[in-house]
């Protein structure tokens, strides 16, 4: 790493995990070396473990009630705040992406689109419910309506490529809808995932709503899939073997599984409210209507 001023030694960042709004090292004490294409060492990354994941699930479950219970408007403001913080640190992210082999133009494009994507989902926070809710004209004397509600705790292995944009594109719809999440950052390009945690941490996102781990998907995928307190799993690679094993293990507690393989996050269809709906449940509520117009009360 180049010194900015002659004779001054640059202070290197220790990349840690992000769990429950804090930056612990992996409890396993393991690390792996992040490199660029030339094989130059960029950083020692935490190699997150099963225990780290379990700690993150506890944090996410603990944060769920509060996050889901917030006003949708407030969630929108917080997502917008994340965009603001990312904009302010734009240069840092461009720099980091360039360290991981992006050209300046590519890095700029990725960071800009990531910011815009956060703004996009910030706007959806208090709108998708109106699009996907319904008042159902039941034939009996009842008032009946259906609304989307967050699924709960979502565990996502975010895209290996597009290490910032992919992470943001997967995370934003999940938390916009009121879920909490555990994200496993890109293994090969992990720097931005932890730097992004710093953005989250300064954006009024309550601790535990977003937890970010680094490590090896080959080790952690099945741990994501078989945890009994996780409601949904998202996996973004085209590796059919891993897909099959995730789906199989997810069955243990009937997790919802979504594969976003081959998604081009730069395209228009890399964002939509249907991504939000992937981690929503529809809840229908019934109540009798009193005997108006001879309809008859149906207690």
């Amino acid at each position: 790493m180049k010194a900015t001023t002659p004779n001054r030694l640059t202070v290197l960042k220790t990349y840690k995990l992000f769990i429950a709004g804090a930056f612990p090292r992996t409890e396993s004490g393991r690390y792996y070396i992040a490199t660029n294409k030339k094989g130059e060492q960029l950083a020692n990354m935490c190699q997150g473990s099963k225990k780290d994941f379990r700690d993150a699930v506890v944090a996410a479950r603990g944060a769920f009630k509060g996050w889901a219970g917030r006003a949708a408007f407030n969630r929108g403001q917080i997502l917008y705040r994340i965009a603001e913080m990312l904009e302010g640190r734009r240069a840092q992210f461009i720099e980091e992406l360039m360290q991981q082999d992006a050209t300046r133009a590519e890095a700029q494009r990725e960071v800009d689109l990531s910011i815009d994507r956060l703004v996009y989902y910030a706007g959806w926070c208090d709108k998708f419910q109106q699009i996907f809710s319904s008042v159902n004209p039941v034939a009996s004397a009842h008032f009946n309506f259906s609304v989307p509600e967050p699924m709960g705790v979502v565990a996502a292995i975010v895209p290996q490529n597009d290490s910032l944009l992919g992470l943001v594109s997967v995370m934003a719809p999940v938390i916009a809808g009121g879920n909490t999440c555990i994200l496993l950052g890109s293994e090969s390009k992990p720097l931005c995932s932890i730097t992004f945690a710093e953005v989250i941490n300064s954006s009024d996102v309550p601790g535990g709503v977003v937890n970010i781990l680094t490590g090896k998907p080959s080790e952690l995928a099945s741990i994501f899939a078989n945890h009994m307190d996780v409601n949904a799993v998202i996996y973004c690679e085209n590796d059919t073997k891993t897909q099959a094993s995730i789906k199989e293990q997810a069955a243990e507690n009937v997790k919802r599984v979504h594969f976003y393989a081959g998604k081009n996050w730069y395209k228009e269809d890399g964002q939509s409210p249907y991504f939000i709906m992937d981690t929503q449940e529809i809840k229908t509520t019934w109540h009798p209507i009193e005997n108006i117009g001879g309809g008859g009360s149906k207690y």
Partner: peptide, 16 residues
């Protein structure tokens, strides 16, 4: 997924 308030076990084609 389905909550009945002051009623129970009601179904309708329009109601998910």
């Amino acid at each position: 997924g389905v909550i009945w308030a002051n009623t129970f076990n009601k179904f309708d084609p329009t109601s998910p």
